[in-house]
Write a protein that binds this DNA or RNA. Structure first.
Lengths: 251, 251
DNA sequence: GCAAAAGTGTTGTCCTTACACCCATGC
DNA sequence: GCATGGGTGTAAGGACAACACTTTTGC
C-alpha cells in the first residue's frame, strides 16, 4: 500500500512499456532469502505412528526436538531432489516416499533471520529402512508424546499429520509404512492409528476385498501367539491403471 | 553423496557436539535465493472458468501470458500477506479468497537464475471485484484458451486447476466465485464448468437442499428471459459450526 | 483347553442415480 | 402461445454400518 512506488521497480514490469532484456540482472536485483527443506518422516511401529526427530543443536532450542532439515536449493537441484538428498544425508535412508506438503514463511519463525521452509512429508517402513546415521540423537518418537519443538516445527508436524490423515483416505500411501507383505490386521491397525478411530474389522476387510487391490501372497504370519493371518501385497500396478476420478460434492 | 563433507558444515549441526549460539551468523552463512509469490486468480463468467493473466514483460517471453506475481518476502510479511499484497497491487482488488497451493523450485524455471515460486490460488467474483489496474493487458482468459505461458506458469496453472477441482468437491470454496446472492442454476453451472461434467439438475438441487446450508433470500432473479429462479446465500456461519470430519477409505 | 486373533454374511439404512412432467416468465 | 429454464418426487441399486459365531494357532 505504502509501497506502491517500490513495486513499479520491483515487479517484473516497467513503466515505460519496454521489455526487459537482461533477466539475470533483473533477478540479481531482488532480495534473496535462505531456504530450508524440512522432512516430517513418519513410521509405524508397535501399532503407533512415529516420527523421526533429532535434537536441535541450536543453543536457543537446547533440549528441543527438531525435524530433519537442511538449508537447500544451493545446488542445481529441484525441491524434490533436495528433500531426497536431505533424507539420505541425515538418515542414510534411500527410496522413501516423499511429497511436498506446504511452505512456511512466517518472518519470525527462525531466530537467525528470515528463513523459508518447504515442508515435505515422508513415509517409510521402520523395519526396512534402518537408520544408518545417529547424529543428534536421531530417533523415532510416538506422535502423541511430542509437545514442544524447535522453531515452528510443531506447527509443521501438525500440518503434515493432518495432511496424512486426509491423504491416506484417498490414496494408497499407507502401504509405504508397512512391510512389503502385511496382514489385514496390520493394515487396519495402521488406519486406526493414523485416523485415531476404531474401525469394524469385517467392514474394513470387505472394503479392501471389494477394491481387489491386495494380492494374496499365499504366505502366513510367523511366530504370532494366535492364529496366523494371511499376508498380502498391495497391487500398485493395478491401482495405477484403474485410478478413477471422483465426482461428488461433500462438505 | 559426494557432498558428505559439505553437509557437516552446511547443516545446522556441528561435529564437535557443541551448540550453536550465533544463529544470525548461521543463517547469514547460507546461500540465499530469490522468491516470488504467484497468484492463480480464478473467476467465473458467462458459465466459464476464467483466469486473470498479464502479458509478460520479459523480452524472452514476449507475447506470452504470465500469472500475477512479484518478488516477495522482502518485507516483514508472512507468505499469505505477501500474496494479498501482490493481489492488491496488481489488480486493486481486496478481500479475496486466497490459499497456498504448491511451491515450485525447478532450477531452470526462471531464465534469470534460480527463483523459487510459491503458488497461491485465488477465487473471486468478477462482478464484485472490478479491476482497478490495467497494466500489461491484465485481463480475464477462458481457461480452455490458454496454451503456452511464460516461465513454467502453465504448469502452475494446471496444478492450481487440479487443486481447485478437488477442493471444490470437499469445501464450499465455489461461492467465492459467485455473487453474494445466486441461483441454483448458477451454482450448478459453476460446478459443471470446474469439474467438466454434466450434473443432473434434480439431484444437484436435492444435494444442496439436504445440506441445508443455503439461505433462501426471498428474492428472485431479475431480467431473465424465462421463469426467474430463487436467489440464495451460502450460510458460512452454519457451515463453520457443523464441519464434520470425514472418515472413509476410497482410492 | 484356553487365550487371542483370524475369518466370514446378513440385514437395515442411507445415499446416489436415473428419469418426466407441470409452472412461471419474457417475448 | 411458445420458448426457456424453474421447480419438484419416486423407485431401484449400491454403499455403508451394525452386529456374533466358528476356526486356527501357541502356550
Amino acid at each position: 500500500m505504502q509501497k506502491k512506488k517500490r513495486t513499479a521497480n520491483i515487479g517484473n514490469r516497467r513503466e515505460d512499456g519496454g521489455l526487459i532484456k537482461d533477466v539475470v540482472k533483473l533477478v540479481a536485483g531482488y532480495p534473496k532469502i535462505a531456504i530450508t527443506v524440512d522432512c516430517v518422516i513418519f513410521g509405524f511401529d508397535e501399532n503407533e505412528l512415529k516420527v523421526l526427530l533429532i535434537r536441535s543443536d541450536l543453543e536457543r532450542f537446547k533440549d528441543k526436538w527438531s525435524l530433519l532439515g537442511d538449508f537447500a536449493v544451493n545446488n542445481n537441484e529441484d525441491l524434490d531432489e533436495a528433500a531426497y538428498r536431505i533424507l539420505k544425508e541425515r538418515t542414510g535412508m534411500d527410496d522413501v516416499y516423499l511429497e511436498q506438503v506446504k511452505t512456511f514463511g512466517n518472518p519470525a519463525r527462525h531466530p537467525g533471520g528470515r528463513v523459508l521452509t518447504i515442508a515435505y512429508c515422508s513415509l517409510l517402513n521402520i523395519q526396512h529402512h534402518q537408520l544408518k546415521i545417529h547424529a543428534n540423537e536421531l530417533h523415532w518418537h510416538s506422535l502423541s508424546t511430542i509437545k514442544e519443538m524447535a522453531f515452528d516445527h510443531k506447527l509443521i508436524l501438525d500440518a503434515c499429520y493432518q495432511w496424512l490423515q486426509k491423504r491416506i483416505q484417498e490414496h494408497p500411501l499407507g502401504f509405504n509404512l508397512l512391510p512389503d507383505k502385511f496382514s489385514l490386521r496390520e493394515l487396519q491397525n495402521l488406519y486406526e492409528a493414523i485416523l485415531g478411530v476404531e474401525l469394524d474389522r469385517r467392514n474394513f476387510r470387505k472394503k479392501f476385498a471389494s477394491m481387489d487391490l491386495l494380492i494374496d501372497t499365499g504366505e502366513m504370519e510367523q511366530d504370532v501367539p494366535h492364529r496366523p493371518g494371511k499376508l498380502y501385497q498391495f497391487d500398485f500396478k493395478k491401482y495405477q491403471k484403474q485410478k478413477r476420478k471422483w465426482i461428488g460434492i461433500d462438505f
